[in-house]
Design a protein around this nucleic acid. Structure first.
Lengths: 335, 335
DNA sequence: TTGTAAGCGTTATCAT
DNA sequence: ATGATAACGCTTACAA
């Protein structure tokens, strides 16, 4: 394997200086016409590929971006990542998937990578920021409001409005006893969904027994557990809005386990529209958020920051109710 | 923000040469005791962080590894990636997730990154290698036999044996009319699972009508379609072995849609044991492969290659039947 | 054991 | 418009 072609090799082959060759390649505008094309042609011919580390060392830019998520095995992030990746890629940036595993130490590591210049910017979908993080003008964007921190660019959805959509739909279908399974307590996303749920119920003049709000943690098992508790109530709900699809799958599972028929005996709405929602039976009615768009937009904001835009941006994406097959009119009403 | 601390700063602060400081940090063994600890202490005190690009430029190593998958939004790869990431991380390597989208151009790009020194090695879970790839002694490991290419280190599972396990279980439960939904035609993984299925059936002396082998592509929808075809047969199967869990979910969905009760009316076995298999109802009986271990091992092999091991390694992981709730004795036998 | 100095490949500054 | 040269931060012969 021959050694890699360097700018110097092209320069020698052409009797030019390395400076000119470098310019012809990186800033073509700064080099006159006959020369420019000659250099470019020769570079192509010699199969020249710039050495990124050398370039990074010199320019102090790594051309790579970290997308940090809590848990890479959570399919929720996949589409977001995909959208972000596509934009980065188009902008000649490389993206690193940062998996924090909900571990503050690992989270801190990614911030160190940022600080050390291993990456030029970061999209955060993790829970928190390291305590004393004083951004050394590194680009940072928060996606999906995992972090409540002013002053950062953010792309989010209106979680409360989304919850309201779920409630409105259930009410329109005639439900009056509607329960909710929440996400992890204390997290902005869960809290907002819960708040939207509570407010919507109030607006419809519906009763909300405390037991109708069950704690969950976004995982399948808590969906099951909460459902068990809900169905054991003297007056069980006729509909359940789970704060995400995975828990909604848990609802379906537990309800069917108990011999209930969905949606005849119990209506269910999930949220996020991950691919799971199509794969369960019956296919899950859910609130969808444009996850690829979210990733794309977050990356666009980041690249904008890298390009010099300073004011924090904010973009809120709309959500959509996807009607599939887990909502029907409640039985008592039918009879 | 103060400029980053460099080796030179430490050297000056201590009245030593940069060479000594560098050695104390990177190759402590090569420096005498009083000096070593002094340097290390000072480095910590000054909050020194090595500049990776400079180091890479000098050593010609990037300390990063690409894990290339066909489609990042396929949850199948997540756990594998996680295992690989953990090992890399422990070895001070960074891992880049390469998403090829089944696009040969993007695949080629990752190989270029390898060649250009953006990465020191690559774990391949994509479909193919670029045509004229003449590995310039770059480390390469194939995981999950997506590629049939001799001479590369590989970590895989015995797909045929796994399929046989599924068949054996169904036969032991009394099934004699067993169908299979395959993965994409031509891919080693699918072909091996199918071959294992066919051979196992033959070994049990069971009939295999051609229509009992339905083509799929590993996706939910083809699971549904194949099931529709299978159930429309004059003599439909009493059990279906789907080549992966996603298609098995499609089987459940379609069968339940048609009013069948699972497993009473139809037994189903999937394969891979992705989290989906627990989230459907009834929870899916499936063949599990140790995906984190596979990722871990692949990365270990890669690091070994990077460390100088030259002979291609090969490791085959065992699979396990996970009995959940989609298999029962067939009806006719009960009556 | 430690120091000197060259060099990794590129870009930026300053001349010409 | 192009060229000479220094510099980015680090490691590693080679010398002392």
């Amino acid at each position: 394997m021959a050694r890699n072609v360097r700018i110097k090799d092209i320069a020698e082959a052409l009797g030019l200086s390395t400076a000119t060759v470098s310019r012809a390649i990186s800033t073509p505008a700064r080099v006159a016409e006959p020369t420019r094309s000659i250099v470019q042609a020769k570079a192509a011919e010699m199969n020249y590929r710039p050495n990124v580390q050398a370039r990074s060392l010199r320019t102090q830019k790594s051309m790579s971006i970290i997308v940090a998520v809590r848990d890479i095995s959570n399919p929720f992030y996949l589409e977001v990542f995909k959208g972000a990746e596509a934009v980065a890629h188009a902008g000649k940036y490389t993206v690193l998937m940062g998996n924090t595993e909900n571990n503050p130490a690992r989270e801190a590591e990614y911030f160190e990578m940022l600080r050390d210049g291993n990456a030029d910017g970061m999209i955060l979908m993790t829970g928190s920021m390291p305590d004393g993080w004083t951004g050394p003008n590194k680009a940072l964007v928060v996606a999906l409001e995992m972090i409540d921190d002013a002053g950062l660019s953010r792309v989010l959805i209106d979680n409360a409005a989304a919850a309201r959509k779920a409630v409105d739909h259930l009410v329109a279908m005639g439900h009056r006893r509607i329960a909710h399974i929440t996400g992890p307590a204390g997290e902005g996303m869960s809290e907002r969904r819960k708040a939207g749920f509570v407010a919507a119920l109030a607006d419809h003049g519906l009763d909300l027994p405390p037991a109708y709000v069950q704690p969950g943690d976004f995982r399948f098992d808590t969906g099951r557990d909460a459902t068990r508790a809900l169905l054991a109530l003297p007056e069980p709900p006729t509909a359940i809005f789970a704060a995400n699809d995975e828990m909604a799958a848990g609802v379906l599972s537990e309800a069917q386990q108990q011999g209930l028929s969905i949606p005849a005996d119990l209506s269910v709405i999930g949220m996020d529209d991950i691919y799971l929602s199509r794969a369960v039976f019956p296919p899950l009615t859910t609130i969808s958020q444009p996850r690829q768009d979210i990733g794309r937009t977050a990356m666009e904001m980041l690249l904008a920051q890298l390009g010099g835009v300073d004011e924090p941006q904010e973009k809120i994406f709309p959500t959509t109710l996807i009607e599939r097959a887990t909502v029907a009119r409640p039985k008592d009403e039918r009879e």
